[in-house]
Simulated scan of single mutants.
Amino acid sequence: MSEDFDLNDPINIEGMKHVRGLLEYIGEDVGREGLKETPARVLAAMHEHFSGYKEDPRDHLEKTFEEVEGYDEVVLVSDIDVHSHCEHHMVPFVGKAHVAYIPRGRVVGLSKLARVVEGYAKRLQVQEKLTMQIANAIEEVLDPKGVAVIIQCQHFCMCHRGVHKPNSWTTTSKLTGAFMNNPSSRLELFQLIGMNKSSD
């Protein structure tokens, strides 16, 4: 368990009671050996899965660089791992995000784009909202010429329950500025994503 997770914190003690209640609800014996430490493990896992509530992902975009020789073409970070949880069923959805922007005089560290994705993904989500939150954050903080966010995920609530369609993928996208209004910028974006896919 992480060092900042305190089992003796009153809120965690209360949380473990609720986990025990859920275990009893599904018919388990909470006293058996394999489950004795499960409430603490579940809370520690939730502490990690939902750490996005403890930060403002936009903060990762505040530090920028202007000494880039006037670079004003597409910046794309593709295949960013997405691990989130559906707010309707609290089960995972996982996949990849492709995040691009066209800078207007300043750029941000590449890892910061991945941190923005992670910050919003580590909350209860729907994929559509996640897509919009990432795009809006980049748009608002960096004021670029255009933003593109494309997310492709498999949702366990569709794959392993309900309609049971394990091979289904959901794709969402948000394009702004030049990516929306300029067909050549949009074509370049899709070609770059395709090139990265073909090199896998």
Rank of each mutant, 00 (worst) to 15 (best):
L113F: 14
C86V: 01
V91S: 14
V91T: 10
S111T: 09
R106E: 14
I102V: 15
L76P: 06
F65W: 10
V117I: 08
E87K: 00
V107Y: 11
V82Y: 05
H83N: 14
R106G: 11
Y101R: 12
I80S: 04
D72P: 09
A114N: 07
E118L: 03
M90P: 05
C86T: 04
V74Y: 07
P92W: 01
V68C: 15
V75N: 03
Y120F: 15
V68H: 15
D79S: 13
L110T: 00
K112C: 12
H83K: 14
Y120H: 07
Q125R: 00
R115S: 13
G119D: 06
V107F: 12
H98T: 01
E66C: 09
G109Q: 05
Y71R: 06
F93M: 04
V126C: 00
I80R: 03
L76T: 02
I80E: 03
R104D: 15
K112H: 11
G105S: 10
F65I: 01
Y71Q: 07
P103Q: 10
V108W: 09
F93Q: 02
G109F: 11
V94E: 10
Y71K: 09
K112Y: 09
H89K: 04
G95H: 06
V126Y: 00
A97S: 02
V116K: 03
G105D: 08
Y101W: 13
V117F: 05
A100V: 05
V68W: 11
E69L: 14
V117A: 08
V126E: 00
A121H: 08
L124W: 01
E87Q: 03
I102G: 06
G95W: 04
D81P: 15
K112N: 11
S78P: 07
K122V: 04
H89W: 00
V126D: 01
Y120K: 01
G105R: 08
E66I: 12
V91I: 06
K96M: 06
V91W: 00
R106Y: 11
E66V: 15
G119H: 07
H89E: 01
E66Y: 13
V77K: 06
C86N: 04
D79C: 07
V77A: 04
V74L: 15
R123Q: 09
V82K: 05
A114V: 03
A114D: 04
Y120L: 02
L124F: 02
V107H: 13
D81S: 12
R104K: 15
K96W: 09
P103C: 09
V108E: 08
S78R: 08
R115N: 12
H98L: 05
A121P: 12
G70K: 13
E73T: 11
H98N: 09
A121V: 09
L76V: 02
H89V: 03
V68E: 15
L76C: 04
Y101M: 11
A97Y: 00
I80A: 06
V68G: 13
V107T: 13
E66K: 15
D72F: 10
H85C: 14
I80M: 03
A97V: 02
E73R: 15
C86M: 01
H83V: 13
